[in-house]
């Protein structure tokens, strides 16, 4: 049994934290885990992607067409990795756009979020999450990544259970922010469960 999770977003959104949380939760659940992520120059507000493979995998990279889950912390970024999505892929997507500098400088346009999600839904079953709103409700915009993790954990068939993930979140975030992050996680879960 192998579950491939692709996490897409923007440098600075806390993607590495999410891959750590997932990896530690997998180990706590007695599963093997591998992955790969972007550091250095590629961060700095650029597109960032992390691969997490839970179960029996060798390669740290998900092969094209094999991602079971897509976790997109930014709507536009969700569309950059269509190559990776498996048929029947489930996608939790933040509907809060972060326009790149190229958009502000008017050298490019940010597509309409509705159209982005529509196109994505041709390749994946899309679960929308208003991550920014829920993060603010949890107490800080910075918890948007954990909101999205909560959403991911509630998708059908997700291999890690919510409590293990909560414990993993609690052990990775600064002690003062544990409560806020757990609230964010739960809000994300509820957003998907409806």
């Amino acid at each position: 049994m192998l579950t491939n999770i692709l996490i897409a977003g923007v440098g600075g959104q806390g993607i590495i934290l999410l891959s750590d949380v997932l990896g530690n939760a997998a180990i706590s659940s007695g599963l093997s885990v591998r992955g790969s992520e972007t550091h250095g120059m590629a961060q700095r507000g650029g597109s960032v992607v992390a691969h997490v493979r839970i179960g029996e995998a060798r390669s740290p990279l998900i092969p094209r067409g094999r991602a079971d889950y897509l976790l997109a912390l930014e709507p536009l970024e969700a569309l950059r990795y269509l190559d990776y999505l498996k048929e029947g892929c489930l996608a939790a997507v933040s509907t809060s756009p972060i326009p790149p500098a190229s958009v502000h400088a008017k050298v490019a346009g940010y597509p309409c979020v509705e159209e982005v999600l529509e196109e994505l839904s041709e390749y994946a079953e899309v679960f929308r999450v208003n991550a920014l709103k829920l993060a603010k409700r949890a107490g800080a915009v910075l918890t948007a990544n954990v909101v999205m993790l909560g959403a991911l954990s509630a998708l059908p068939g997700f291999p890690l259970d919510a409590q293990t993930l909560r414990e993993s979140v609690a052990s990775r975030v600064p002690p003062k922010t544990v409560e806020m992050n757990l609230k964010a996680f739960n809000l994300g879960r509820e957003a998907v469960k409806g």
Partner: peptide
């Protein structure tokens, strides 16, 4: 046959790394 390459119909603005 390698899994197909798919490019979105929508034009995606690039997001290169930038000065913070």
């Amino acid at each position: 046959s390698p899994p197909p390459r798919r490019s979105p119909r929508l034009e995606l603005p690039p997001r290169p790394p930038v000065l913070c």
